[in-house]
Design a protein around this nucleic acid. Structure first.
Lengths: 254, 254
DNA sequence: GTGTTTATCGTCAGGCAGACGACTATGATC
DNA sequence: GATCATAGTCGTCTGCCTGACGATAAACAC
């Protein structure tokens, strides 16, 4: 068969889905939107949408991210409107049965952003919110007292979310990506709380301070100090130019 | 717009492309096939093909791998026919202009296999061969004396190959994946030559031996010895159950 | 036997991480 | 204002891992 005869291969719909992570109140949270129509009507899902005919996958993901959160992907240093976020491709999901209506291949992307105000619901979603990933991934327990139970995510989005969380957890080990969860200026303590929230562990503040300030290019002092958290004022830093950390941060074993 | 109205989104063709790597004669090599038709007729390209209507992405990649090499993806322990190989999803490439004829989204996969005899050309390719990745990625030099110059790979396959090689290089650092390049039984020296070929470095045999034999679960002695390489007979090992190496192998800097 | 090749075991110094003590600088409370 | 609680920052010590490298072992080629 001619491999490019337009009638000789099946047609797919291609979407991008977004795992948008942030750290809120010492917990790793993901952006979820409520589905307004079947299937899975009323259930929470990851934000996403169709890739347009003239659009690259990364462009589509950046567009969806802006539509849902107002964030700009940070490759082009964003000018005025809104914060910047890290955006990268995660993985692609194309099980024939993942969407009951038709064959959809979804290219999932991972976005990491600093803590934002309440998300603005955009596009085709009734509403949007940040939900702790622990609650989204372990349906049993954790949401008994909450007003809204996330229940199970729609489609295969629980799997996608789990893959995105695992990517984030491993990537902050050997890259400076944890700074993507922080505002442009931050303290060592704030950065440490990011690691603690993403990994779900408690780190020694003294060893952490020695490690991150001793890694060349990770942090650069911005001059000021702050006392946001109470206690002694802390020095403010910006993310340095380094992207890979060598030696890496070590995630404590269990 | 209704997000699932079949007329409301563009139709894509979805393919899988394979970066199949092996180590031959102390060099990291990739499987390439010669294109039999335009565009890029006569040029070398990565093997690949369309995803079928009822097929998962991983299934399509495993099918293409078997068609091109006779290898079986190693998730189900393969019975009789042919060797087993590691297969994982790499990344997805969907630039609107990457195929001049139509909109094609390609889900690239990475396969690592032990050294194989000459590949059998299958499917729609005139011929297939192993080519050193150095020659495929740096067109300048390296192939002056060869009978066939790989020239530039078709489509965006040079980029895909580079991403696959980088994935392999980083993944053997913190996982036991280097054993996927070895036959079922191998010596420490053979494993070291895999690392040397993939990373393009020279490693100290004594420190390497101490490191790999001291990492629990990485290698299990299989009892026998061999003298394949000349010199003192070496102990034979099999891959142990460990998949992540903690602490990781350290790639020497520069 | 001598030389060559590869495998394997040891030794030693330097560096980094975990555990943890000590001190500093702020706000809160009495 | 004294005291306490909180958070940040600097040091010390010990153990482990790594890189550099010497030494020995077991095969083959001549």
């Amino acid at each position: 068969m001619s491999p490019y005869d337009p009638s000789a291969f099946p047609a797919f719909a291609v979407t991008v889905d977004l795992v948008v992570l942030t750290v809120r109140r010492h917990a790793l949270c993901a952006l979820v939107v409520r589905r307004g129509e079947p299937p899975f009507q009323g259930r929470w899902a990851l934000p996403g949408g169709f890739v347009r005919a003239d659009e690259d996958l990364a462009e589509a993901a950046a567009r969806e991210l802006t539509e849902e959160t107002g964030l700009c992907a940070h490759d082009p240093v964003s000018p005025a409107p809104g914060n910047a976020a890290h955006l990268e491709q995660l993985a692609t999901y194309g099980d024939p049965g993942r969407d009951p209506r038709m064959r959809v291949v979804s290219v999932a992307h991972l976005a990491l952003s600093p803590d934002l105000p309440a998300p603005r619901a955009g596009g085709d979603a009734n509403s949007a919110r940040w939900a702790p990933v622990d609650a989204l991934l372990n349906q049993e327990g954790g949401f008994a007292r909450e007003d809204e139970q996330p229940a199970q995510l729609a489609f295969d989005h629980a799997r996608i979310l789990a893959d995105g969380v695992e990517r984030a957890r491993s990537k902050i080990e050997y890259s400076s990506l944890a700074t993507a969860f922080c505002p442009s200026e931050f303290t060592v303590g704030e950065l440490r709380r990011v690691y603690e929230a993403v990994w779900g562990v408690v780190l020694d503040p003294r060893n952490f301070h020695r490690k991150v300030t001793g890694t060349p290019g990770f942090l650069v002092p911005s001059g000021g100090t702050t006392t946001r958290q109470g206690g002694r004022p802390a020095q403010l830093f910006r993310a340095g130019g380094a992207t890979v950390l060598n030696p890496p941060m070590l995630r404590p074993e269990v």
